[in-house]
Write a protein that binds this DNA or RNA. Structure first.
Length: 468
RNA sequence: GGCCCGUUCGUCUAUCGGUUAGGACACCUGGUUUUCAACCAGGUAAGAGGGGUUCGACUCCCCUACGGGCUGCCA
């Protein structure tokens, strides 16, 4: 609070799997907050758990962030590589008298906890070494425990949750440095956040209780406590914590499903955060509007329908060239065949029309099938029905009329209307076989749009094929 | 078990003691249309329950219920 320091936020995932959608949102909030205030957004990989951390997971997290468009400042920090510094701080605490050597064995502690729990009590392990005379210390491995206050309370001034008070008596003297000299998470986060000059810690509220213990470390070292903001976790549509059984939980899965990144950002920003009635906004606008005060206190549920709707708006407002670029990236990510040069050219022409009515890239591909197929076009069952003998005759009579027409909607419209009238049918009846002939299916964009995109030559060729 | 947090339409939310409780998604109806869409107009729909405080509570306090989190020499 009232800190004169420039804003520095960070995202600090542990590399034990893909980037979770909840983690992606946490990163997004940190990113928005920093970017909106001319601050820095840092990335730190919490890889101190050597058993579970993998370089593949780190790579996946970076890919996910990159896809979401969240760029970080400076180098990615590896927490593991900072272990010497963590140990150094633990020893500094020792020297300051805010920590002590504990020789209690793990088995001893585990047994104590088991016994307490069996007795129905809350196990707070009080180490007998807390006030022991150093002269009595055995020559044995030890861990370093923080000498936490036993009485009173610790108050967390949280920007989202408000003032949270924790009784110190419910907290035991946590270990900051293990007996093998490696730091625990509680120590490492604080040391890293301090060293990285992090001013605002925005993270999941599963860390709210941890904040009290971490604040004690800040106090023990005489460091300035950062601004806390613990945001509620994302839940599945059923209100339960989001897990695999709800379907996609990884950010990259959403890319593979074909959601545009801009729509994803907009949706995720609005999930658990509001700014009046603002619903659809650009990333620049989000950066401008985002604040901690707008974050809700209750966990929000993922709603795919709204995600799709939001994505639809972003598809429609996207820049054509950028959209084509993202489509290419989508195809690669989804393992679908890339566009040929010809297809890319046609797509560029069709995009201004197609983008208005699609929500995702798979839907875009579906609507664009007329320009992706090659002659001879293979019709589906419904299209074949539409191409009955009578219809084929009509198409045949249409072909020569198209040869000389100028290729604009204004010029084509009267011709098609005339053909329809000549055959005593409405335009709707004529449109069906036209769709079938041009696209091989009955659900397509408007016939004019298709004809204009593929051009006269191709249109005539397809109609001729169908007329045979 | 203990501690901490949360609870407004089905969903995301606005409201910051006085509103016909607003918007968006979804849903329903109608319109438009060359199909599916898109688009336009309208509609249904909410303060978990119970006590207080107050002239007046969705807003403040307490209890209950429900949901979530933490309770490791994991992060």
């Amino acid at each position: 609070m009232n800190s004169p320091r420039p804003v520095v936020t960070r995202f600090a995932p542990s590399p034990t799997g893909y980037l979770h959608i909840g983690g992606g949102r946490t990163a997004l909030f940190n990113w928005l907050y920093a970017r909106g205030r001319g601050g820095k957004f840092l990335l730190r990989i919490e890889d101190t758990d050597r058993e579970r951390s993998t370089p593949e997971a780190t790579a996946a997290i970076l890919r996910g962030l990159t896809w979401l468009g969240l760029d970080w400042d400076g180098e990615v920090v590896s927490q593991f590589e900072r272990r010497d510094r963590h140990a150094e701080v633990a020893h500094a605490m020792l020297a300051r008298g805010t920590a002590y050597k504990c020789f209690a064995m793990q088995e001893e502690i585990a047994a104590f906890r088991a016994a307490e729990e069996a007795a129905g009590r809350y196990p707070v392990f009080l180490s007998p070494w807390r006030d022991a005379d150093p002269a009595t210390h055995p020559d044995a491995p030890y861990s370093i425990r923080m000498k936490a206050p036993r009485t009173g309370e610790t108050v967390i001034e949280d920007q989202v949750q408000g003032r949270v008070t924790i009784q110190n008596a419910t907290l035991d003297d946590m270990i900051v440095l293990r007996s093998d000299n490696t730091p625990t998470y509680m120590l490492a986060v604080v040391v890293d956040d301090h060293d990285m000059s992090v001013t605002h810690v925005i993270r999941g509220d599963d860390h709210l209780n941890n904040a009290a213990r971490q604040q004690m470390v800040y106090d023990a070292m005489g460091w300035e406590v950062p601004v806390w903001a613990h945001i509620p976790l994302i839940h599945g549509p059923d209100g339960k914590k989001l897990s695999k059984r709800h379907g996609a939980t990884g950010v990259e899965e959403y890319q593979v499903m074909g959601y545009p990144a801009a729509g994803m950002r907009n949706y995720l920003t609005r999930l658990g955060w509001a700014h009046g009635d603002a619903e659809i906004f650009t990333t620049a606008e989000a950066v401008e509007m985002f604040d901690l005060a707008g974050i809700g206190r209750a966990p929000a549920r993922l709603d795919f329908k709204k995600l799709e709707n939001t994505c639809g708006h972003h598809m429609a407002m996207a820049d054509d060239a950028a959209l084509l670029h993202e489509l290419t990236a989508y195809l690669a990510a989804a393992g679908r065949p890339p566009l040929t040069d010809l297809q890319a050219n046609l797509m560029a022409k069709a995009l201004p029309v197609l983008k208005k009515s699609v929500k995702t890239f798979p839907e875009l591909i579906e609507k664009a099938s007329f320009l992706l197929v090659q002659r001879p076009i293979i019709s589906d069952d419904k299209a074949r029905e539409a191409l009955d003998t009578v219809s084929r005759g009509i198409l045949k009579s249409l072909t020569p009329r198209l040869q000389n027409a100028s290729w604009t909607k204004e010029a084509l419209e009267p011709i098609l209307n005339e053909i329809a009238a000549d055959n005593g049918i409405g335009f709707g009846k004529l449109a069906a076989p036209l769709r079938a002939a041009i696209a091989g299916r009955t659900v397509t964009p408007s016939v004019y749009d298709m004809m204009l995109v593929i051009g006269r030559e191709e249109t005539v060729a397809r109609l001729s094929d169908a007329g045979k």
